[in-house]
């Protein structure tokens, strides 16, 4: 019983972490172009980290 007192919050916290991670990814537009994301990994950017906009 005493172990449950901290195990349950820990389990819920980890679950919530995953949930918020997903919601954040959704909000930042990472699901807007799934096909493009798969291809972009193959593109070399010679100009370093370029600031590219995401359409809103």
């Amino acid at each position: 019983m005493t172990t449950l007192v901290y195990l349950i919050p820990v389990a819920l916290f980890l679950g919530a972490l995953g949930l918020f991670g997903f919601l954040w990814a959704l909000r930042s537009g990472q699901y807007e172009d799934l096909d493009g994301a798969a291809e972009r990994i193959l593109i070399d950017r010679d100009d370093g980290a370029q600031n590219v906009p995401r359409s809103k």
Partner: peptide, 30 residues
């Protein structure tokens, strides 16, 4: 992927263009 790169590079080089981004899923470029 090659389409994305050639389009983004070519349009990005034009004067007065801030940025271009291709969306492959919807086949659009903004």
């Amino acid at each position: 992927g090659a389409c994305i790169q050639s389009i983004e590079t070519a349009i990005g080089k034009l004067d007065h263009v801030d940025a271009a981004r291709v969306n492959l899923s919807t086949k659009r470029v903004s």
